[in-house]
Design a protein around this nucleic acid. Structure first.
Length: 369
DNA sequence: CACGCGTGGGG
DNA sequence: TCCCCAAGCGT
């Protein structure tokens, strides 16, 4: 081998060094993160906070997570406190963040840590994998960041960075195993947590999906996609299915004392376990289509539009005032003073906004989507 | 293994 | 206005 050629081991070491050097200078500040300087001074992140943040960050942006993380940790500062929380309180606090199965699994996970692990998180990737809601990504991330295990962390950012770095042209998701192997090859034994966070920061700020800023990239000299002008093309992805449009109706009943008729949705399915307005099914499967309570229902005249992960929804919102003695067939009345729209999933908040506007301005028309 | 599962921001 | 996307997991 000539002096000008690097061995694969040397190239891997260079990539790792360049990446960590960049991270030392550009690590983003996050409430759950111990920065590289503090980390090397021996400060260790709290596994509870790392775990909580990683669950929240699944398919969710850092910007969206920040305020939720702050509220959760103020209200439930450790895993024992969270394990002891009421289900409804946790679901209400999660409202608006989406993918509500995460909140149900979060509680199950907290309770498993308390019941099965003496209140301490498992310290290995394999141990963490046994927790509900913790899959390959989250287990590796917590093991690396909180416990210094040189586990390979592969999320959407890492897939993109590695696909470009090594010019992997196989489309996702078929390329995932190969990308995982390549990601493992550049995972260092030292500072694995910082390495993982550096890869994700790089993907989020430099090696972005649409317009990567290769001129600022610490791995520019190493990147095969950039060398070949393929950085925007990679990673290739299988085409996505078109979202169908579905329709439904929500009924919002206001009792004479101002109480509102709400119901807790079934644990499984859309918005599972969340509070919401009674309504029809959204898949026209022939479920109940009767109003939840007898009343003189009137249309608000405003269609609520909302897009979920796999379909568009158009909702009619019906409104009625009901007598104090009225007994609902579904759901239960929540006192006016105890109702907080922020405890509802976003689509239900939109419907409430329409109803509230209709209550304030009976002839008015507003448009929400 | 393919699909179900939210939401908000950016281009 | 739309489409794309974001630190995935469970089934």
């Amino acid at each position: 081998m000539r002096d000008t050629e690097e061995s694969p081991e040397e190239e891997v070491a260079d990539i790792s060094a360049r990446l960590l050097g960049w991270y030392d200078r550009h690590a983003r500040e996050m409430p759950w993160r111990v920065g590289p300087a503090d980390r090397r001074a021996g400060v260790r992140p709290d596994p509870y906070r790392v775990w909580l943040s990683e669950i929240m960050l699944q398919q969710t942006t850092v910007a969206a997570v920040r305020s939720y993380f702050r509220r959760f940790t103020e209200r439930w500062p450790d895993v024992g406190a969270l394990a002891a929380a009421e289900d409804a309180e946790v679901m209400a606090e999660w409202a608006g963040l989406g993918y509500y199965a995460r909140a149900r699994n979060l509680l199950r996970g907290a309770r498993a840590v308390v019941a099965d692990h003496g209140g301490r998180f498992p310290e290995t990737r394999d141990g963490l994998l046994t927790l509900p809601g913790v899959g390959p990504y989250t287990a590796a991330a917590v093991a690396a960041i909180a416990f210094d295990e040189p586990a390979t962390v592969v999320d959407g950012n890492v897939e993109r960075v590695v696909a470009r770095l090594f010019r992997v042209e196989t489309p996702l998701p078929a390329a995932k195993p190969a990308l995982t192997r390549l990601a493992a090859a550049i995972t260092p034994q030292e500072r694995p947590g910082d390495h993982a966070q550096a890869m994700m920061d790089l993907g989020a700020t430099i090696c972005t999906p649409r317009k990567p800023v290769c001129s600022l990239c610490p791995l520019g000299p190493d990147c095969a996609a950039r060398r070949d002008g393929l950085e925007v093309e990679l990673p290739r992805k299988a085409p996505k299915a078109v979202k169908p449009v579905r329709e439904g109706t929500l009924w919002i009943a206001v009792r004479a004392d101002g109480a509102l008729l709400l119901e807790t949705r079934p644990e499984t399915g859309m918005l599972g376990g969340m509070l919401g307005w009674p309504g029809t099914d959204w898949d026209r499967s022939g479920g109940p289509t009767d109003p939840p309570i007898a009343a003189d229902w009137r249309a608000t005249g405003v269609e609520v539009r909302h897009t979920f992960s796999h379909f568009h929804l158009r909702l009619s919102v019906l409104l009625a005032e009901v007598a104090q003695e009225a007994v609902p067939a579904r759901g239960s009345f929540v006192p006016h003073e105890r109702f907080r729209p922020s405890s509802l999933p976003t689509v239900m908040q939109k419907a409430w906004n329409v109803a509230a506007a209709a209550i304030r301005h009976p002839r008015g028309e507003a448009r929400l989507d």
